[in-house]
């Protein structure tokens, strides 16, 4: 089953959602939605991988065409990845049906 659209979820530290959208727009994304969240992690895993999880998070949800998924993910990895203070983790999910995308993209392009 092939999916025409995918939704990219990028979890970043609080205050980095603008950086996420800047990187995603460079790769061809149009707009996104930011959800405030709180992160938790396994303390031992944090020590082992030398990663600290800041509790205050933002989840940026970006709906993209499947064709630019990899470009957007690469941009996020390079610009707001774990080496950046944003400490972003991004992944994509297949989307089987979409409505309202044209009005959504119209608004974001205004």
């Amino acid at each position: 089953m092939s999916f025409k659209h995918e939704v990219i979820l990028c979890i970043v530290n609080n205050g980095f959602s603008d950086a996420v959208m800047d990187a995603a727009r460079e790769a061809g994304a149009r707009g996104g939605t930011v959800i405030h969240a709180r992160g938790t992690a396994n303390k031992k895993a944090e020590e082992f991988f030398n990663i600290s999880i800041q509790p205050e998070k933002e989840v940026v949800m970006i709906l993209v065409d499947s064709g630019i998924r990899d470009a957007v993910l690469h941009a996020l990895y390079n610009e707001v990845g774990l080496k950046d203070p944003a400490q972003g983790i991004a992944f994509a999910l297949p989307v089987s049906n979409v409505v309202g995308l044209s009005t959504y993209s119209d608004k974001t392009e205004e």
């Binding site: 659209h5 939704v7 089987s96 049906n97 409505v99 309202g100 009005t103 608004k107």
Partner: peptide
């Protein structure tokens, strides 16, 4: 989305 005032949105399924 097209008929409700200020009701624009986006919906998708996973």
């Amino acid at each position: 989305f097209h008929t409700i005032r200020n009701g624009k949105g986006i919906a998708f399924t996973v």
